[in-house]
């Protein structure tokens, strides 16, 4: 169906979610698919001009040169073989290509692994929405009946801890914090001790935003990983990279570098309620094979949805 592993939602709630996602992605849809349709609808048959316009549309959606070349290669090949009698058929080819890119196997694969507490680290460059995402994740997971503890490991940005405290309260989860300027690994250590003592199911670690070019800060993340692993076997079970949907081709570099430093197991794409298409996620999935786990579609507590390739691509194509 629309959402993987048919969580714990009733059909009505599911439909509601789908509607919300469609609505939120409306802007995205208008730009990517709306324009693909406009291109395809305006021509009686596929010709070189139409193909070029189609290419422009994909590039304009931040798909990047490489993914665009791949998709257009498939469209052109099909066109040559006469498999695209109508513009509509081109749409099918594009859809399949995009879907193929997004369908990558899970890397974490810890759901139900039984370890307690599970540790999820949330990482990313500055301003992508890590803290907000942690808040929403906490709320989502608490809603599934799990006991959540949030670790405020962003000890750098002024008021980041206060911001997270508000989210912790909203989502009804516990918060372990230190003072600003503290050692993030130390907070993490404390949080994991607390989690063990309180029989918490899952620890969400909010880390400070950092540019992937700052090697000392990337090493700090690696240290946190090690601290987590020493404290809890197999931790961190998930390292989630938060990517802003407005990000362009640098998103790929970010994903590459964060993966190298921290072993990213999943992506969270935020700010999809804007006009940006989040097209960079295709590039990331294609090159690095990292699955997208969640998408952020607004500022409210419930505006974080589980991701599934079909529903994402289909909501683009509906």
């Amino acid at each position: 169906m629309f959402f993987k592993k048919s969580s714990r939602e009733t059909p009505e709630k599911k439909a509601g979610l789908f509607e919300r996602m469609k609505k939120a992605l409306g802007a995205t849809k208008e730009s990517l698919v709306g324009r693909i349709e406009a291109v395809l609808g305006s021509v009686p048959a596929i010709d070189e001009g139409a193909l070029e316009e189609l290419e422009g549309t994909l590039l304009g959606a931040d798909l990047g040169v490489r993914v665009t070349d791949r998709v257009m290669g498939a469209v052109r090949a099909a066109h040559k073989k006469g498999e695209i009698p109508s513009p509509d058929a081109a749409r099918g080819v594009i859809r399949n290509q995009l879907l193929e890119i997004l369908e990558v196997p899970e890397l974490g694969g810890v759901e139900g692994s039984g370890t307690r507490p599970e540790v999820w680290m949330v990482v990313g460059v500055n301003g992508t929405g890590k803290t907000t995402t942690v808040g929403k994740l906490a709320s989502r997971l608490t809603g599934e009946g799990r006991r959540i503890l949030i670790c405020a490991a962003d000890t750098f940005r002024p008021a980041a801890i206060e911001q997270l405290a508000v989210w912790a309260e909203r989502s009804g989860s516990e918060l372990i914090r230190s003072r600003i300027g503290g050692d993030p690994s130390a907070v993490l250590h404390d949080a994991l001790s607390a989690a063990e003592a309180r029989a918490t199911d899952l620890v969400l670690v909010d880390t400070a935003g950092r540019l992937h070019t700052k090697s000392n800060l990337m090493m700090e993340l690696d240290k946190m990983r090690r601290v987590a692993g020493r404290k809890v076997p197999g931790a961190p079970h998930e390292v989630l990279l938060v990517v802003d949907a407005t990000t362009g081709q640098n998103g790929l570099v970010q994903a590459r570098e964060f993966t190298r430093a921290t072993g990213v197991t999943g992506l969270i794409v935020t700010k999809l309620d804007g006009t940006a298409k989040g097209g960079i996620l295709f590039g990331i999935c294609e090159e690095l094979g990292i699955p997208v786990r969640f998408i952020g579609i607004g500022e409210a507590l419930e505006d974080l949805l589980e991701f599934s390739p079909e529903s994402f691509v289909d909501s683009l194509f509906r």
Partner: peptide, 12 residues
């Protein structure tokens, strides 16, 4: 504006 912004920069 974020230097990392992609194609959407035009629109916003």
């Amino acid at each position: 504006a974020d230097a990392m912004t992609g194609q959407d920069a035009v629109r916003s």
